[in-house]
């Protein structure tokens, strides 16, 4: 179902209605002069004024909401001669609405679902989420969603998908919950010119996207070019800092650390995001390292996104958000790698 809502109604009426039922998460710069200020981030929104719907990209993706870094799994403590375990994972007490998620990030949730679909805490959170997506107003500088079929439009993965059409948002429902929302009185029927305005906006964004590549050509080239000298060139520039992994909405590797008190009488098991660029990532017992060389680690990440996931799951797991290039200190850009492949 397609409808439109005036921006004023969106910010006043819809926001207030949503707030009554949901905990609202959206793009914002509230919180002061940190990098989360320089770059908007997904955070709790109490006031519509704090929403930044015109954002282009964020530093951190939404994955922290469903797959938090530094999440304590359980606590153990010695009680006499026994060991007591306390579950520390927490389910949401209130449903959340995610406002303003761009199509690339909506696609990323589908990737996370494949990885964490068996985790009941994860699925519970996903079930308690209402996704109100937002198509991009303009292309971000290093994004390539259209090359990996995750934008600038989205076909699924949302309850509602908004497009800014000037003084209002065009709203497309993607689920029954979305349709129910659209039945509220401040959503009006979409006129043919609204549909046109939406198409025009998406076309503009698509035209702005630079460095488009053919996914088919890339995936077949990857199958053949594992030993290409190109990997040396890219790896030379890589500082193995792991920034790309952290900001990636589909990187899901983690390690489990133990945070124990000095006397080990009590401790916690904690999930910590890991980086496949770190030397000890593939370190095995017996001091054997599967990917000791920087080059092999660099290559592994690209293959994981564009080759292994395709072979195993039938779909590449990169959504083209461009964050890895945005926050790479060396500006290593997947688009360049792909086009040169």
């Amino acid at each position: 179902m397609d409808k439109v809502i005036r921006k004023h109604d969106f910010l006043k009426l819809l926001f207030a209605d949503l707030k009554e039922k949901y905990h609202i998460i959206g793009p914002t710069r509230k919180g002061g002069g940190t990098s989360t200020y320089a770059y908007p981030t997904f955070d709790d929104i109490d006031r519509a004024i704090d929403l930044e719907m015109g954002y282009t990209t964020t530093m951190g993706s939404l994955k922290k909401l469903y797959f938090p870094d530094n999440e304590a799994l359980y606590q153990y403590q010695r009680v006499g001669t026994e060991v007591e375990l306390v579950n520390l994972r927490q389910a949401w007490d209130k449903e959340k609405v995610i406002l303003g998620l761009h199509p690339c990030d909506i696609s990323a949730l589908a990737v996370l679902d494949k990885v964490f679909g068996l985790d009941q805490y994860y699925t519970d959170k996903r079930n308690k989420s209402l996704i109100i997506g937002l198509t991009c107003d303009s292309a971000c500088s290093r994004g390539f969603c259209s090359s990996v079929n995750s934008g600038p439009d989205a076909q699924s993965g949302f309850d509602l998908l908004l497009t800014d059409i000037g003084d209002g948002y065009f709203c497309r429902s993607g689920s029954e919950r979305g349709e129910r929302l659209l039945s509220l009185e401040y959503f009006k029927a979409a006129a043919p010119e609204d549909i046109q305005a939406r198409a025009k906006k998406l076309q503009k964004t698509e035209d702005e996207l630079k460095g488009r590549f053919s996914l088919d050509e890339v995936t077949s080239a990857l199958a053949e070019k594992y030993n290409d000298s190109l990997w040396d060139e890219f790896a030379d520039k890589c500082y193995t800092c792991g920034a790309c992994n952290m900001v990636c909405p589909t990187c899901t590797c983690f390690t489990i650390n133990e945070k124990a008190k000095g006397d080990h009488s009590q401790g916690k098991r904690v999930v910590v995001w890991d980086s496949c660029h770190f030397e000890r990532f593939a370190q095995m017992a017996g001091n054997f390292n599967l990917r000791e060389e920087k080059k092999s680690r660099f290559k592994h990440r690209i293959y994981d996104k564009f080759h292994f996931s395709l072979v195993r799951q039938g779909k590449v797991s990169c959504v083209g958000c461009g964050r890895c290039a945005d926050f790479c200190p060396s500006h290593i850009d997947i688009r360049e790698a792909m086009s040169r492949l």
Binding site: T34, S35, T36, T41, M59, G60, K64, D69, N70, G242, A243, M246, V247, K259, W273, F327
Partner: peptide, 15 residues
């Protein structure tokens, strides 16, 4: 303070 901005890690996440 932000300890690892890309990760969203702050002082509060330290031991």
């Amino acid at each position: 303070i932000e300890l690892w901005p890309e990760k969203g890690m702050h002082a509060a996440d330290a031991d």
